[in-house]
Amino acid sequence: MSAELDALTVVNQLRDLAADPLNRRAIVEDQGCLPGLILFLDHPNPQVVYSALLAVRYLAECRANREKMKDELGMMLSLQNVMQKTTSPGETKLMASEIYEILQSAGKEEAAQADAAAASCRRKAQFFLGSNNKRAKTVVLHIDGLDDSTRRSLCEEALLKIRGVISFTFQMAVKRCVVRIRSDLKAEALGSAINSTKVMKAQQIVRTENGGERIVPFQEDSSVEVEENTDIPDYLPEEDSPSQEQDKAVQRVGSMTEGIGWLSTAANFLTRSFYWPNST
């Protein structure tokens, strides 16, 4: 297994673990994982950089993490480098800019608000990421027929054709897909694309006022114009990992015990692969 493939496997695992709010504090508090993600931001493989950015974006959703992330050695500088690098794709620069703005504002909120947000981050999943950012939003889909890797590949192909899709993560055990999109893209476009496969049907999961979930079908007769995507980098499919552990991580989102157990494996890899300067 090549070093690059190892890096891609590890960053994909961290991305999937960071997608679960219950794992975000543990990842940031680990001594090796956050510095490793920062180094991945300077990786020559654009897929590794994009996946690392998505992981960092998930971690920044937890307010209690932001101050530590901002102060972590190399974090803000690496984000600036991604934003300024001429070879970075547009969506990669956009995500780096979002993260930079979020972390830059860390510490300006009142301590009481930070504590309340941290408790909320630990207690329940957040289905709408980046609600304070006007340029991106997250849609959670329930997909009937999402039963195996073949169907998942069809779903990936359908979503990749839509201009404005930034990223997506599958939760196969519950037939869900968390899709991050530009704010000007309608959720109906996602449903239309998935329904066009003829073997799967998508519905949207929304939060109710009491904190529960409600499944909302897309209108059958709604005509949504979908602009073909030609600019963003290739999304990182789950099959990039040669092992089965990545699929397990996706299927078991919400398991804090298993997430922390895997963090030690990731930290060992990062320790072996990189030299960490001693802090003074």
Rank of each mutant, 00 (worst) to 15 (best):
S183K: 12
Y100H: 15
K85D: 15
V199P: 00
E61Y: 01
D71P: 00
D231Y: 07
R123M: 14
N45R: 10
E220F: 06
V226C: 09
N81M: 08
A18Q: 04
L154G: 00
I162R: 05
G164E: 04
L22M: 07
R207K: 14
G145E: 06
T208V: 06
D20I: 03
E238S: 12
A202T: 10
A112K: 11
L17H: 01
S273P: 00
I99L: 15
A267L: 00
L77T: 13
D234C: 11
T280L: 10
S88K: 06
E91Y: 11
W276F: 14
L34M: 12
G261S: 14
R57L: 06
L37P: 02
A173N: 14
V179L: 08
K198C: 06
A118R: 11
D20Y: 05
A119P: 00
P217T: 11
I99M: 04
P217K: 09
L14Y: 01
D20Q: 08
D148G: 10
S243P: 00
R182V: 12
R207V: 13
Q204Y: 00
S153A: 15
I38T: 10
I194N: 03
E29K: 13
Q47D: 11
V250W: 03
A111M: 05
K85M: 07
K248A: 10
E227L: 12
N210F: 03
I205G: 04
I194A: 04
L41C: 05
P35F: 04
S255F: 05
Y100N: 13
